[in-house]
Design a protein around this nucleic acid. Structure first.
Length: 516
RNA sequence: GGCCCCAUCGUCUAACCCGGUUAGGACACAGGGUUUUCAUCCCUGCAAUAGGGGUUCAAAUCCCCUUGGGGUCACCA
């Protein structure tokens, strides 16, 4: 096969959509699988807003996930520039070429006229296509109108007597009857190009071999194919990937619908998590950062490997049983013909389970590196982080074990850094304020004074010995100690907790609990 | 509404192209075991071919229809 070149062409919207990320991943995967190039082009035709700021989160999402691009934004390349806003001359040239060949025409009709035509067609229950009045104008009439300063747009002349055929890598054979297609505007009165046109010009000029994009572009495709043909371009291959649906629905996931996702059972936990974590980090809450955006996953402490794995398995499979896949594995096996045709609902639970897997695989030093920023941002530890603190955090992470799923879970270790404990009152009542327990706790507290060094094995020996002597179950003391020293009913092993806290703090907290 | 796409457990999917499997796996859920918490880990269970017609010895698989779901219909991208 000749050189494979794929592209992802986001418009700078200020955030990276998780569904768009999946499409980008498939493009990247196909390029890498084939040893080709992946291009990141910016579709910023007539965007008034702040480019820089609106683009940053998108590029950051690619960097975070490790999806590098061979040409495009920031790095340039042989087909530069890669920003549509800077490629005006190319579009002008192509538009002139079409007009000169009689394949596009100047349309002098006003928006009002077009709207009226459309309404009329609607009323008569027939499909709307352009009436093409401007086509009947003589050259002198047209020149007059131009002289009068009448604005016009350039429309592509759809060849109404043909059919467009597409053999899509995912959808298969699709056909459209051109007699039903309105003539699309390809250039505005001010000379700026429209998306459908700019895309065609760019894809051809950048030698894109495979246009892999979301299904919602399928209806744009006949026009683009026609445009390519009119321009004399070699047609790229097309692959229309089904869109990503929101959890528990079949509808395309959309940022505009975040309010309803907030209440959807499958999504709810992610929003709650955001409201719990982000305020502690000074990052707003689920209003500012929600699970539709890639940045949510980065900020809440997901691993790129987990997000990539989940995205890769959404609408694509390697075989009948492989679930856990590294990026390398996906590159090795990815093919377009194994992309599923039906929309896939995003599944937060499954992502979470992938996360559990990849977090378990992560070497300790990387876990520490991942958690440290959270502790700093939540002001639980100071910056710069000293070796002693770093070591302490490492010990906590070891004790935390597989309970640490997201990096932000480390915020649950607050009681190792702060003395104002948050008590789980219900459990405190159940495990501490219970017949006989305070007495045991007080008695064992005295034994603790003698434990030296204050280590896990010594603590365990002491507790077992005490319980045997007094004929009490170890569980009674274990639970009481955990509630007293951490305030919580769940967490790392209680001996780990005591050892990590050290003798002084442990004793003080037991005293405080007994005094409550 | 026009055009187009889609349809297997609750979810993601395998098997479909080239008809023959007790329709497989994973997540979730339920139960059990290990860890006197929780998490991990192990075992077990639950659970699907939308409906109707064809074709065929045989249909999840091929064809048609119905139903349902979705996307798109801009001088947005």
């Amino acid at each position: 096969m000749s050189q494979v070149r794929t592209r992802f062409a986001p418009s700078p919207t200020g955030y990276m959509h998780i569904g768009g990320m999946r499409t980008a991943l498939f493009n990247w995967l196909w390029a890498r699988h084939c040893g080709g190039q992946f291009i990141l082009r910016i579709d910023d035709t007539d965007q008034a807003r702040n480019q820089e700021a609106a683009l940053r989160p998108i590029l950051q999402a690619f960097r975070w996930l490790g999806l590098n691009w061979d040409e495009g934004a920031e790095i340039g390349g042989p087909y530069a520039p890669y920003y549509q806003s800077q490629r005006g001359a190319l579009y002008q040239e192509a538009a002139q070429k079409l007009e000169a060949a009689g394949l596009a025409y100047r349309d002098f009709s006003t928006r009002e006229e077009v709207d009226a035509d459309r309404k009329q067609a609607d009323k008569e229950k027939r499909p709307y296509i352009n009436i093409r009045r401007s086509l009947e104008l003589t050259d002198t009439q047209k020149a007059d109108l131009v002289a009068q300063g009448r604005p016009w747009v350039l429309r592509f002349l759809i060849p109404r007597d043909t059919k467009v055929q597409l053999d899509d890598h995912i959808r298969g054979h699709v056909e459209w009857d051109c007699s039903l297609l309105p003539d699309p505007v390809i250039q505005r009165a001010d000379g700026s190009p429209l998306y459908n046109f700019a895309t065609v010009v760019d894809d051809a000029q950048m030698q894109i071999s495979h246009v892999i994009r979301a299904e919602e572009h399928l209806s744009n495709t006949p026009i683009q194919i026609l445009l390519h043909q009119a321009l004399g371009n070699t047609l790229p291959q097309f692959a229309h990937v089904p869109y990503v649906a929101s959890p528990g629905s079949k509808e395309k996931m959309s940022k505009r619908k975040t309010e309803q996702y907030r209440k959807a059972p499958a999504f709810q936990k992610m929003f709650e998590r955001a409201d719990e974590v982000f305020p502690q980090l000074g990052l707003g809450n689920s209003e500012t950062l929600n699970p539709v955006m890639v940045e949510y996953y980065e900020r809440i402490g997901y691993l790129p490997a987990a997000v990539l794995n989940a995205l890769g398995r959404l609408g694509w499979s390697l075989d009948d049983s492989t679930e856990i896949m590294s990026l390398d594995t996906m590159v090795k096996h990815f093919t377009l013909d194994r992309v599923v045709q039906a929309p896939a609902g995003f599944d937060p639970d499954k992502l979470f389970s992938f996360q559990g897997h990849w977090m378990k695989e992560l070497p300790l030093d990387q876990k520490v590196a991942g958690c440290l920023p959270y502790l700093v941002q939540a002001q639980l530890i100071a910056e710069p982080v000293t070796d002693a603190v770093r070591q302490y955090v490492e010990q906590i992470i070891v004790a935390w074990g597989d309970r640490l799923k997201l990096f932000s879970d480390i915020l649950g270790a607050r009681y190792f850094f702060r003395d104002d404990l948050v008590y789980d009152e219900k459990m405190f009542d159940k495990r501490v304020r219970k017949e006989g327990v305070p007495a045991h706790l007080a008695a064992f507290r005295q034994r603790l004074v003698e434990v030296d060094p204050f280590t896990v094995p010594n603590l365990e020996t002491a507790l077992t010995a005490y319980c045997q002597e007094v004929g009490e179950q170890t569980g009674t003391l274990i639970h009481a100690l955990r509630l007293s020293t951490t305030g919580q009913a769940v967490g790392p092993g209680v001996y780990d907790c005591l050892a990590l806290l050290g003798k002084d703090k442990s004793l003080a907290r037991i005293d405080a609990a007994l005094a409550r």
